[in-house]
Design a binder for these strands. Structure first.
Length: 259
DNA sequence: GCGGAAATAT
DNA sequence: CATATTTCCG
């Protein structure tokens, strides 16, 4: 009786979720928060890519712990794709459940923190507000909002009067236990899924990754999330963000191709 | 601890 | 100056 629903909700979830095609070209993954600045270079789909450069950061012999306890997280750049996923998450969650934590969980972007989402959500709400205010007029939607403008506002986000979405309530998230992937012993090769972290201490060798630090420390998070379908992850080289005479670390997300 | 808005920071 | 992060408060 209920079994069908149990197996159906997932299918439905996938369908209801953003369009697979929309997600495919996207690469959703940020580096693990803990520290890990990963440089992933995966050009061809050769499985045997043993581009394993797990180099640690400059080990301080003074007694500095290699652990990233004091490392500050790079500034997150909200790409249109990432924002798209954000909007989709909010849309499917409904205004009610669209709180930073749940949004974050649904987005299931590695490395994305609740603070990131909260901050973005704040901006997004302001954007929606502005949009409502100057709906008829061109006031509000200017040139600085193209990020938000890139994504359509699904339903009347700011319209609590209408039904939220009792229709299809997203089952929060799926524990990885369901489809889990055995033990992920070493997150060496498999872990790179469209990573997009950049560390600009040293320039890249013409597309070749130097001995950048690829340190993935994350292992057991409390909750793993299952991602809809299989996001084809592809990673390219990240954008460079140079500042005058300074090494900057920018965490960004880049699409492999744009429709 | 979490969500939301304001205050800083980059 | 825009935008992401940090701080503050309920």
């Amino acid at each position: 009786m209920r079994e069908e629903e149990d197996s159906n909700w997932f299918t439905k979830w996938e369908e209801e979720l953003p369009s697979p095609e929309e997600l495919i070209p996207l690469t959703q993954s940020l580096i693990t928060p803990d520290l890990a600045i990963a440089f992933d270079l995966r050009t061809t789909n050769t499985n045997s890519g043993q581009v394993n450069s797990t180099a640690e950061f400059a080990a301080d012999s003074t007694g500095d712990e290699p652990t990233a306890r004091t490392l500050k997280r790079p500034r997150l750049v909200w790409t249109p794709q990432l924002h798209k996923r954000f909007v989709d998450a909010v849309a499917h969650l409904g205004i009610k459940n669209a709180v930073p934590k749940t949004i974050m969980q649904l987005m299931s972007v590695d490395g994305l923190t609740r603070e990131n989402v909260a901050s973005h959500l704040q901006k997004y709400r302001l954007y929606l507000k502005r949009m409502q205010s100057g709906a008829g007029n061109n006031a509000g939607v200017g040139d600085s909002d193209h990020l938000f403008a890139s994504s359509h506002v699904p339903t009347h986000f700011l319209n609590p009067t209408s039904r939220q979405n009792s229709d299809h309530f997203i089952p929060s998230f799926v524990p990885i236990s369901t489809l889990q992937q055995h033990h992920q012993q070493q997150q060496s090769q498999f872990l790179h899924r469209g990573i997009a972290a950049v560390n600009f201490t040293s320039p890249v060798n013409n597309g070749k990754v130097m001995d950048q630090s690829l340190f993935l420390a994350r292992q057991n998070q409390q909750q793993q999330v299952i991602r809809p379908s299989s996001l084809h992850l592809h990673s390219q080289v990240a954008n460079h963000t140079e500042e005058s005479g300074g090494a900057k670390t920018v965490l960004t997300l880049f699409p492999t191709r744009n429709d």
